[in-house]
Structure formats: C-alpha cells, structure tokens
C-alpha cells in the first residue's frame, strides 16, 4: 500500500508545488489538500477539501482518510498578507489543531513535515554569523510573525516529545528566491529601485524555490526526524544581490526607518515588513550542514539562486507574464476525478 498524504495549505505556492510533485510519485496513493481557498495550480488527482483557517475539521479528515503523512506548508511567514489575528489563527491555532488530530487515539499519522522559517532566529547585531539548529535567538522576538512562528515551534517540540513514534521534521527555510515565488523579499528586488538601509550592507543567504520543494519531498521520503536549516551555500552582501539583479538601491535612513516607510506603506507602494527591515540591517546566515549530512543535495547556491531569479526576470521582461491563469472549477474537477465516463489508466485512481 502506498502512502496517504495530507497537505495543509494546498492553495499556497508551496502546497500547490508539493502536490504536483507528489502526484508524479507512484508510491503515493492518496493526496488530500486542505485550504481556505481553492487551488491555484492544475492538479490531476489531489483531492481538495475546503476548511476554515484553523482546521477544526482536521481530526475528522485524519480519522476518515487514514492519512499517514502530513505536510504542514500552511504557515504564514509573510506578515504583509494579513492581520495579526488572522495569522495567529492560521499559524498557532491551525498547528494546534493539526497536532491534536495527529496525536488523537488511533491516529494513523506516522510522518509530519513542518515548513517553518529562519525568522525564528531573528536578526540582530549580537547574532552568530551562522545559526545552527540548536542555537537560540539573541533577543526577544520583535515582530508578530516571529512570535507566532516561535509559538508554532513550541507546539512542534511538544508534539515530538509526546509522540516519539511519529517522525517529525521541522524545516527552517531562509529567504526564498526563484522564478515564480512572490514574497516581500522578492518584490523588493522587483521594484525599479531596490530598498536598502543607508550605511548597512548585510550578509544574505538565499534558497531557490525548487530546493525548497525538493527539501520537503526529501524529508517526506527519507523520514529524517529533527529540526533542519534549509538554505543555499554561501552568503552574499545585499549590494551584490542588487548588482546581480541590475538594480540601483534607494537608501532609507538608518534611524526612524519605520516612520520613513509608513507613508509608502499607506500609499501601497512599498510594504516592507519589520522583519525584512531588520534583515536589511543585520542580515542572517544559517548553517545548512545538518540537512546536507542527512543526504540532501542542493541544486543552487545563494548566488546561483539569485542568478536563476534574474534569468527568469529577463525572460518575463521580454515575454510578459504568459502563464495561463488557472481557475478551479469544482464540478469539472469532480467530473475528472470521479465520473465513470472518464477512462483512467492511472494505476492509483
């Protein structure tokens, strides 16, 4: 019998990419995707279930479907997307419900992968230049997304302690860059003038979006328990990144930067979350050797990821954004998945 996988956050960038990759794996029998919104990418055999943002129906789904694997990719790491309260519901309460369902009596869950972020380390001048998985952050969390992720990780730790039979991997990703991903970090690089903080030129570490999906698949496949940093090799200064992208930096004042960016935020021009401003001052490096020792191979270094992003940016400049917009039509999807009229040569459906 193959694996039965549940993906939280199917409609996020990561959930969609992960589902697509899992569909190609004949060792995966069932893929169930949970989200509040409809999927944004074309999927062949993934079953989409609409849920509320904090997954109150999760325990019913786990019981009914007997999933053995959960990929928790729904954590919000971009604080510009939503209010503090909504983020708390999704990240903290959602994770709480997820683990409640996974640890219920008679639960079939044996493998959980949580997509966390290097934001849990923060970014401050006291930091070590390379955070290891066991390192604590230097100071108290300053921003709400960091607080929320730290709370999530404390649930993760509790769950791991209480359920030693479940293989639980927590992956902490550094800033992601790539052809398709859109984050405040990537949109900062897409602006005509790239923001920087005057007088600072911090070290940045990046990871390519494909390496992120590969890392989640690797963790699902190899079942490596523990916390892992996921980041490309090497760090490069912000000035070098902007130079590779071919943009000029627009300096922001080093003091009172929140005041300076507030009007821009109001106008909807630039939305730089506070954690990104910290990063633009002090940078961050995370030690990726543990996951490499577990056997994972990256396809891109930090600089390589930037180069791949620039190549995609150039292509888009010439060709325009030609991705046909995918729209989820429930009756169409149901027809293809369940109608007796459809001939299915696929061995697993």
């Amino acid at each position: 019998m193959g694996r039965r996988v549940l993906i939280t956050g199917l409609s996020t960038f990561w959930g969609g990419r992960l589902a697509q990759a899992l569909e190609a794996d004949p060792g995966v029998d069932v893929i169930i995707g949970l989200d509040t919104r409809e999927p944004t990418v074309k999927l062949e055999r993934t079953e989409y279930v609409r849920s509320d943002e904090n997954y109150s129906i999760l325990s019913r789904i786990v019981r009914a479907t007997g999933v053995d694997t959960i990929a928790h990719t729904f954590l919000v790491v971009d604080s510009t997307q939503m209010s503090s309260r909504a983020m708390h519901e999704i990240n903290v309460i959602g994770t709480m419900n997820l683990f409640a369902a996974a640890s219920a009596a008679g639960s079939t869950v044996r493998n959980v992968v949580v997509k966390s972020a290097a934001l849990v380390y923060g970014s401050s001048p006291q930091d070590p230049y390379w955070f290891r998985e066991t390192d604590k952050r230097s100071g108290q969390p300053r921003t709400r997304v960091e607080r929320s992720l730290l709370e999530v990780e404390s649930y993760v730790r509790d769950f791991a302690r209480d359920n030693p039979k479940v293989c639980l991997s927590t992956l902490r990703f550094c800033n992601v860059i790539g052809p398709d991903i859109s984050t405040p970090f990537v949109s900062a690089l897409e602006m005509p003038f790239v923001p920087k903080v005057a007088g600072y030129d911090p070290r940045f570490q990046l990871v390519h979006e494909d390496d992120v999906v590969s890392a989640i698949l690797f963790a699902l496949d190899k079942q490596v328990p523990g916390v892992f940093n996921i980041a490309g090799d090497g760090v490069l200064p912000w000035s070098e990144i902007t130079a590779i992208v071919g943009k000029r930096g627009i300096p922001m004042p080093p003091f009172g930067i929140d005041l300076a960016t507030a009007p821009l935020r109001r106008l909807g021009l630039v939305d730089l979350p506070p954690e990104l401003i910290d990063l633009l001052k002090f940078g961050r490096g995370i030690d990726n050797s543990l996951f490499k020792e577990a056997g994972f191979r990256y396809q891109y270094t930090s600089a390589g990821a930037v180069a791949a992003f620039v190549a995609a940016l150039r292509l888009r400049k010439t060709m325009g954004n030609h991705d046909p917009a995918y729209r989820y039509e429930e009756d169409v999807e149901q027809f293809f998945r369940h109608s007796p009229a459809v001939m299915r040569d696929h061995p697993h459906t």
Binding site: E23, A24, P26, G27, K42, E44, L217, R297, H346, P347
Partner: peptide, 18 residues
C-alpha cells in the same frame, strides 16, 4: 517505480535530487 504518468510528469518542475 512503474512508468511515470506522462501527463503529470510533464507538469512537475522538481524531482527528488539524486
């Protein structure tokens, strides 16, 4: 592994790294 379903394989941008 059996033969990969061609339709989905063409869609998938990433594979497990060797």
């Amino acid at each position: 592994r059996g033969p990969l379903p061609t339709q989905t394989a063409a869609l998938v941008p990433v594979h497990l790294p060797p």
